[in-house]
Structure formats: structure tokens, C-alpha cells
């Protein structure tokens, strides 16, 4: 498989996953805001930092209010991480590798992109937001399901699986990070029940609430939820599950030594820490460590498999 094609498939998978998880991120925050008494709610601004897009946000928007932030995350063409930009980038990547992917996957992605483009205005209204986000999430799931059911298990498949799971691992930490700010003073009476409600919200946003209830615990507690989302080996959006899938995918490639060392290092970092015991501030720092580990892993994949970066000559 061509190095350029491998890179495009990898990014295609990452961008689609990013769009889906950005939708999940907005959804969890919407519910969080609705569930929290006004005055305590951190509002929307933390999303700008969690997505790592503060600099871009400040160049296009002035007020960090709900309207501006949602618009920035859903439909801003200047934000390369917005849902619309991610899908546009996924589509561009797909266009260059159409001959490698099942034909219906291009049609599905094209349809998802057109859906996002045509419905973005309604997604920006409060009443239309949930429908829009659901459409993005289910469209992305359809695409992933389609690839899973018809795609030949060659290198193209491995790169798409690696990209998807790496991005998902990264976004899982970001979604958990939404809850990592200390919301409530400990002496507040209603803190505990509010806290529980919000962890339920996080679970729901990752389609993990039902699974958690069935397989982990009846009661929703911070410690159990964190353990579930980081360490559970069977839940497909848990950090461990995602990087295990990356590990498995890399193991099927040739010349996988350097990338395998990267993934093993990341797994070790996770295993050494019991996230349930971390304070919110420590959790936030640990999430940073994991995200940096993901960046390192990406760099080692790029160095081994992707084409050298284009050297553009300076024109006077």
C-alpha cells in the first residue's frame, strides 16, 4: 500500500471519529449545563481548552458564550477541528483513496458531509442541536459499521482501525476532562447527587450508561466510572480498549518495532496509575500525559509509514 494512501486512510478515520466525538462532547456539555444549578455550572468555555483550540477560538470569536462556542465547534470553517471541517477533511481524504475503500463508504461519507453542511444552521439552534448531533453520531457509526462489515482486512483496514481508535482514545480523555473541573465545594449538601447525575451524563454521552449498569455497578460513582472509562478492557470506548485495538492493528503491519514500543509505553503509563484515586486536578494532569503519549505514538507511525512531508520551495 502506498505511504500516501496509508496516511490518508488513517486521517480519514481520525477525522470521522473526531466529528463523532465532538458531537458527543457538545452533547455531554449541553446536558451538564441543563443538570447544574445556574451559578455553579462552568458553562461552555472549558470546551475551548479541552479541545485544545483556544488560540483558534480567540481569532474568530470574541465572547466565549454558548452560541459562539457551539458555532465554533459545529460549523466554523476556520476551526479545523469543527464537526463540519472534520467531515470536509475526511471527505477530501476519502476522495484521494476512493479506489482503496469500498465504494459505498464514499457514498456514506459524502451523505454524512452533505447532511452536516445542509443542517448546520438548524444544529446551531437550541431546539435543533440534539437532532443534528444525533445525525452526526449515527452517520459516523453507520460508516464505521459499513467498513467493519465489508472491508478487506488488509493494510488499509489496519490503518483505518489504528486512526479511528487513536482518535477515540484521545477524545475519550477529552470527554472525561469536561467533568474534571471541580464543580462543587465539598460541603455543599446537594453535591453528591449532582455529582452522580453528571457522571451519568458522561456515561450516556459515550453510549456507556447501560453497559456500566449491567456489568459494573448499579450505583454510579466517580471511582467506578473512571475505572470503567480508562481501564475496562471490554467497553469499546474505554481508553484501554482503544489503545489495545491500536496495538493489535500496529502488530499486523510490517516494520512495526518503533510504533509498538510507543504503544507499549502508553499502556504502561495507564497501568501504573489508578485513576480512581486521583483528585480532579491530578486527573486533569494525567489526561495531559496520556494525550502527549498519543502525539508521540502518532509521530512514530508517521516516521515509519507515511511519506516524508512535502518540502515546499519558498517563492519570492
Amino acid at each position: 500500500m502506498l505511504s500516501r494512501v496509508a496516511e490518508n486512510i488513517y486521517w480519514l478515520a481520525r477525522y470521522v471519529e473526531r466529528a463523532e466525538n465532538t458531537a458527543r462532547l457538545i452533547r455531554v456539555n449541553s446536558h451538564l449545563v441543563l443538570d447544574t444549578p445556574s451559578g455553579i455550572a462552568p458553562g461552555w468555555e472549558p470546551l475551548v481548552d479541552i479541545t485544545g483550540l483556544r488560540l483558534q477560538f480567540e481569532t474568530v470569536e470574541r465572547e466565549p458564550n454558548e452560541r459562539n462556542i457551539v458555532r465554533f465547534l459545529i460549523g466554523d470553517a476556520h476551526n479545523h477541528g469543527s464537526i463540519l471541517s472534520s467531515l470536509a477533511a475526511a471527505r477530501e481524504n476519502c476522495r484521494t483513496v476512493r479506489e482503496v475503500l469500498p465504494r459505498s463508504s464514499w457514498e456514506k461519507l459524502n451523505e454524512l458531509y452533505l447532511f452536516a453542511k445542509e443542517n448546520v444552521q438548524s444544529g446551531l439552534t437550541k431546539s435543533g442541536r440534539d437532532d443534528f448531533l444525533d445525525g452526526i453520531i449515527s452517520g459516523s457509526q453507520q460508516l464505521v459499521g459499513l467498513l467493519g462489515s465489508v472491508m478487506y482486512r488488509d493494510e488499509a483496514w489496519h490503518f483505518s482501525r489504528i486512526g479511528r481508535n487513536l482518535e477515540r482514545a484521545d477524545m475519550t480523555t477529552r470527554i472525561i476532562d469536561v467533568r474534571s473541573t471541580d464543580l462543587f465545594p465539598d460541603d455543599m449538601l446537594e453535591s453528591r447527587s449532582l455529582d452522580t447525575l453528571q457522571w451519568i451524563s458522561v456515561l450516556r454521552s459515550m453510549s456507556g450508561y447501560q453497559t456500566y449498569r449491567r456489568h459494573v455497578a448499579i450505583r454510579v460513582s466517580r471511582a467506578d466510572v473512571l475505572d470503567f472509562l480508562f481501564h475496562n478492557p471490554l467497553f469499546p470506548r474505554s481508553f484501554l480498549h482503544c489503545i489495545s485495538a491500536v496495538d493489535d492493528g500496529i502488530g499486523k503491519l510490517e516494520n512495526s518495532g518503533p510504533a509498538l514500543r510507543g504503544i507499549r509505553a502508553l499502556k504502561l503509563k495507564l497501568r501504573r496509575v489508578n485513576v480512581a484515586e486521583l483528585s480532579q486536578a491530578q486527573l486533569h494532569d494525567f489526561i495531559d500525559v496520556l494525550q502527549l503519549g498519543i502525539i508521540d505514538l502518532h509521530n512514530s507511525l508517521a516516521a515509519t509509514y507515511f511519506p516524508p512531508e512535502l518540502e515546499l520551495e519558498e517563492t519570492g
Binding site: 502506498l2 465504494r103 490503518f159 510490517e254 516494520n255 509509514y305 511519506p307
Partner: peptide
């Protein structure tokens, strides 16, 4: 390319070596 099961390449994917053969850069 898709219909033929051929590779779709751009110039930067290809490379002519000293043996005058054309090679493409692949993941392996």
C-alpha cells in the same frame, strides 16, 4: 484505478532509481 484494481498514484509517490526502474513508496 478503482475499477481496474490498480494503484492511483501521484508523482510524489513514484521514484526512478539508478537501475531505471520505477518504484512506488509503500508502507512496506
Amino acid at each position: 484505478a478503482m475499477e481496474m484494481g490498480a494503484e492511483l498514484v501521484e508523482g510524489r509517490d513514484l521514484f526512478v532509481d539508478d537501475d531505471d526502474c520505477v518504484y512506488m513508496r509503500t508502507v512496506s
